[in-house]
Design a protein around this nucleic acid. Structure first.
Length: 695
DNA sequence: TTAGGGTTAG
């Protein structure tokens, strides 16, 4: 090599080294300039090029770095430098950082002299990219080929055990580490602590943490995170105080772990500002997330805007908070922002957007995002398909749901759950049953969510016997009686007509949540047990729980069934004045039912006139039903015309009109209405009654 | 080594 060549190379090498620390122009561009200067790259040049590309690949979410990696690969191949083991491993690392695990696997397979370092790189690469099973299988392959694991191997693999909740396998790896003396390594210890916590073995995590003589900030963060993940928020905060008392300086991860451990967001935000940690982009992103989750979109948006480089995670946190409330206009604004920034959405962002498509008015937006997903390839992710399944089932488009489901290459339990709950939501409990049997045939074990959906399906079709079987399944399989499953179980017994069994389940719960109380109150209300419903309401208040909109729907239903107009009026007043709940159309329809059934037509009309929102067909229909009871034919006819103009396809209207004329003995008119019903194809909705004989 | 956005349930 001439002196000139050597000097020139040194110049380009220093340029490439800068790429590892600064965000400058493409490292491949520098490399091309080097070639144009007629300089011959050495293996060091390539090593620096790979490192520079790897360090700049994290920030971007575009295709460009992947294409650059392929170009580097070609240069290495052409120059023959790819033969060097350390260069191959460097390239493998680059692919792994870019998420191109298939290319990385190809490199390892083609490596004639692969060493532990290359195995480690791919194992940790699989793990970092969420391919936990692949990481595990590769580890087994490595050991079978006679390679001895190193501390780095375990550090790469152990997080996969945590994510898969493979506590047994994690313990085996812990054992391998102890035998080989690798468990003394602090990184291995921290990784194992985190693994035990993620597997729910908090005691295991605590033992490892206590054993550590020198606890680094990472160790403290791991244990704070461990408490947070297991719901012990007080312990997480206590440990943070202990860490500070021992003069260990907190870092960005400490703040993030505390935020996800439900610590007071404003206190932690202040701490982050005071300690200067708030300049960290990940911390700001976490803050955006917690503010967005609690509904403080204004603060979340301000924080998001304060980021020097907006990132997809932070934007997704905003999208998700808007989607939760169905504010699709804001969601679309966020999406437009991502386009402005040339940001490609990922599967999580897509799922968040789809979650917001709840209102039929936004079906077109949902379809457009489905198209976007197909175009960008995001629909391949089963996460996105699950999101689409849920979206289409919200609109009862069961054909689309089945087509998406049958096209899935892998069908994890969550996908079965999505389609089963989708069928139930779309009123197709029979299909849900069929899928449930298929799912079991494929060897999947239903979880609490499957069972809750199935219970809701049983409620829909009044299938008490199968509901009881599901109850037994819960008991046999020790499925934790979480609030939602208890509520679904009680709801099933009520809807299947067995209030006694619902009461038995309810009595077995120590601290029922509001949803469970609401289910019981509504259940009593619709079953005609007015006093029991109101006693339960009183008991709920005695326990310090704050009733919500659903509670009052149940309470009003009870008053309607008991025909107790005075109590109904009083509870409506309590709802609006004491609890500041603005009445929904359903509450208004209940009040109109109560008043008109009691014969208070003037009051009912006044009530409708004073409503804050426009009365819908349910409200007018409630008044019409009152007319049927009290033979108010004149008013009833007026309401019938009004309802016809609002929705002439409503079959219930003809039934009510027929009842109205019958109440006044106007049989000719009854016959006329029935003839119209026959001519237009019945009352528009067929009904079915079902009783189940029990032994 | 630790951490930030998401889906399925009432």
């Amino acid at each position: 090599m001439s002196l000139g060549n050597s000097f020139g190379l040194c110049f380009f090498h220093s340029l490439l080294s800068q790429h590892q620390t600064k965000a400058v122009k493409s490292s491949l561009l520098v490399f091309r300039q080097l070639l144009q200067s007629n300089l011959k790259p050495s293996d060091l040049t390539f090593s620096l090029l790979i490192k520079a590309s790897a360090s700049s690949s994290f920030a971007s979410n575009s295709l460009k770095p992947k294409l650059e990696a392929n170009q580097i690969h070609t240069h290495l191949f052409k120059s023959g430098i790819i033969q060097l083991a350390y260069i191959r491993t460097g390239l493998l690392n680059l692919y792994v950082n870019l998420g191109c695990v298939k290319n990385a696997r190809f490199l390892l397979d083609e490596m004639p002299d692969r060493d532990v370092v290359a195995w480690n790189a791919l194992i940790s690469g699989y793990s970092k990219n969420g391919h936990d099973f692949l990481a595990f299988n590769l580890f087994i392959e490595m050991v079978r080929e006679g390679f001895r694991p190193q501390a780095t191997t375990l550090v790469g693999l152990v997080p996969s055990c945590g994510r898969l909740e493979f506590v047994f396998q994690g313990k085996s790896i812990h054992g391998i580490g102890v035998k080989a003396g690798l468990d003394r390594d602090s990184k291995v210890k921290n990784a194992l602590t985190s693994m035990y916590a993620k597997c729910g073995d908090l005691e295991g995590a605590e033992i490892l943490f206590e054993e550590m003589v020198e606890k680094s900030v990472v160790s403290w963060n791991t244990m704070i995170g461990a408490y947070g993940q297991n719901g012990l928020y007080g312990e997480a905060m206590f440990l943070f105080k202990k860490m500070r008392a021992q003069a260990v300086e907190a870092n960005s991860v400490t703040v993030m772990s505390l935020l996800s451990a439900n610590a007071d967001r404003e206190t932690i935000h202040c701490f982050a500002i005071k300690s200067g940690i708030v300049n960290n982009a990940s911390v700001v992103t976490s803050l955006v997330s917690v503010y967005a989750k609690c509904g403080d979109s204004e603060s979340a948006e301000l924080l998001h805007k304060s980021l020097s480089h907006e990132n997809l995670v932070s934007l997704t946190a905003l999208i998700s908070s808007y989607a939760e409330t169905g504010n699709m206009n804001k969601v679309v604004v966020c999406f437009a922002r991502s386009r402005q920034l040339n940001m490609e959405l990922d599967a999580v962002a897509m799922v968040s957007i789809l979650h917001g498509v709840k209102n039929p008015a936004y079906i077109a937006i949902g379809l457009a995002f489905h198209g976007y997903g197909i175009k960008t390839g995001l629909c391949i992710h089963c996460l996105v398909t699950n999101g689409l399944i849920s979206m289409y089932s919200r609109f009862n488009d069961i054909e689309a749901v089945f087509s998406l489901f049958s096209g899935m290459q892998e069908k994890p339990l969550i996908s079965w759950n999505s389609i089963i709950s989708g069928c139930v939501q779309a009123g197709r409990a029979g299909d849900a049953m069929e899928l449930f049997f298929q799912m079991k045939m494929y060897g999947y074990v239903p979880d609490a969510i499957t069972i809750a959906s199935m219970l809701s399906g049983c409620s829909q079709i009044g299938y008490l016997q199968y509901g009881k079987k599901l109850h037994c399944f819960i008991l046999r399989n020790n499925i934790e009686m979480e609030d939602f499953i208890v509520t679904a179980l009680i709801d099933m017994y009520i809807k299947c007509g067995s209030i006694e069994l619902a009461e038995r389940v309810f009595r077995g719960i120590k601290e029922p949540c509001l949803a469970t109380w609401n289910t019981m109150i509504t259940g009593y209300g619709i079953s005609g047990f007015e006093n029991k419903a109101l006693n339960h309401y009183a008991e709920l208040r005695k326990r310090g729980l704050k009733p919500d909109k659903i509670t009052f729907l149940g309470v009003l239903a009870a008053c309607i069934h008991g025909g107790d107009v005075d109590k109904g009026r009083r509870y409506f007043q309590i709802m609006t004045e004491e609890f500041g709940i603005s009445p929904s159309l359903q509450h208004c329809a209940s009040m109109v039912t109560l008043l008109s059934r009691g014969g208070y037509f003037e009051e009912a009309l006044l009530f409708i006139r004073n409503m804050e929102c426009d009365p819908d067909s349910a409200v007018w229909g409630a008044l019409l039903d009152g007319c049927c009871i009290h033979q108010e034919v004149k008013l009833g006819e007026y309401l019938g015309k009004k309802l016809y103009l609002l929705d002439h396809t409503n079959g219930g209207l003809y039934v009510s009109m027929s009842n109205l004329y019958a109440s006044g003995g106007m049989w000719d008119d009854v016959a006329r209405v029935r003839q119209i019903m026959k001519d237009t194809g019945g009352d528009g909705s067929s009904g079915a009654s079902l009783i189940e004989l029990t032994s």
